[in-house]
Simulated scan of single mutants.
Amino acid sequence: MVTASIVLYKNDENVLLQAINSFLNSKTNDIIFLYLIDNSPTDELKRIISHPGVEYIFNPSNPGFGAAHNIAIDRAMKKGSQYHLVLNPDVYFDGNVIEGLLCYMNKNLDVGNVLPKVFYPDGSIQYLAKLLPTPYDWIGRRFNPFKKMVEKRNQTFELKISGYDKIMDAPYLSGCFMFLRIDTLRKVGLFDDKIFMYGEETDLCRRIILAGFRTVFYPKEVIYHHFEKGSHKSWHLTKIGIQSAIYYFNKWGWFFDSERKIINNRTLKSFGK
């Protein structure tokens, strides 16, 4: 069984339906089931779909992105799911993606999380496989006015040096599409619900690696992501992002983080760096 969850919050219905139908129309022999966790103030989005393979859960207390997905993952575990997809409401893909990822995961039992190649709707690539972040990557880079300096760092931090054309182990994979092995989650735990939004996927990827599993970028399958970069448009969301970064670095280490150094150096070494 493959389950998935989408966390809702006052979403554009047309974009949301693209995400829902992408998963429900997957061409696979495995049973699929989708959870919609609605953190919106009202349950207006409840009417968006009625389907036997969908469970809508209204959660207006809005505990955050990771905490809401945890509700679905906990139910998926009890349902006997083998894989769970954490899916953003602004992502869409064709019917073969899930089956392609299932084949890869079934053949590679040491992989705990996989991310396909991600494009914008216009076909340009998104660089969403990264190194574990330093404080500069998450805070300083955001406010650095010297764009050439930022881009130079991005070549390494966003692993652009890889060419994004081959399967690779990347320690920090985007939370827009996390294809997770349930057995891995049973060992490492779910999202840290103390992180309201932004950075929860980084924390989970790191725990997956430290437990001995791999986090893999898999470009043989592709998805599309509208990717609005809300934190770059709203000071409220920027504040949430900074708070999440502070929590993450307090948890794992700021400038002195030996595990980060080991993991990142191992990744760069695979590219001859």
Rank of each mutant, 00 (worst) to 15 (best):
D192P: 14
Y127K: 15
I20A: 10
D193N: 15
D192G: 13
S124R: 13
P121H: 00
C176D: 13
Y120W: 13
K148E: 14
A68L: 03
K187E: 11
A245Q: 07
H84N: 02
S40A: 12
I208N: 12
P41K: 01
T215V: 07
V2G: 04
S26W: 07
L268W: 11
Y92N: 08
A4K: 04
P121F: 01
M105N: 02
P60V: 14
D169Y: 00
L173C: 09
E259I: 00
G212V: 09
P52C: 06
Y164H: 15
S174Q: 03
L210D: 13
A4Q: 04
P171A: 01
Q155H: 07
S124I: 02
W254T: 09
Y120F: 15
N11Q: 14
D122T: 03
D110S: 15
N154T: 05
D90F: 02
I32G: 04
R153W: 08
S162Y: 06
K46Y: 14
D94P: 05
N265P: 01
N39C: 12
F146E: 05
S174H: 08
F119I: 05
D122C: 04
K79R: 14
N11L: 11
V114Y: 11
N265V: 08
T134P: 07
D257R: 04
G253Q: 00
K251S: 12
K273L: 08
T3S: 11
K10Y: 06
S81W: 15
K46A: 08
E201V: 09
H84E: 00
S258H: 04
K117W: 06
P89F: 01
N154C: 11
C176Y: 08
E158H: 14
P116Q: 09
D94R: 07
Y92P: 03
L8K: 08
F146W: 12
P219S: 05
L34N: 11
D94E: 09
T42F: 10
H236Y: 14
H69W: 03
D193G: 07
D110G: 13
V15A: 02
L173Q: 03
L17N: 09
I49R: 09
I262M: 02
F196R: 06
T238Y: 15
Y120D: 10
T184R: 14
R214H: 13
I246K: 15
D94V: 01
G230P: 10
H226R: 07
Y198Q: 05
K251F: 04
D169G: 01
E221D: 06
F255H: 13
I242F: 06
E228V: 01
Q18L: 11
R206S: 10
W254K: 14
F271Y: 12
S244Q: 05
N21I: 00
P219K: 08
L17K: 09
D183W: 05
A4R: 13
P52N: 07
V150E: 10
D110K: 15
E44K: 09
L237C: 08
I6T: 03
K130D: 08
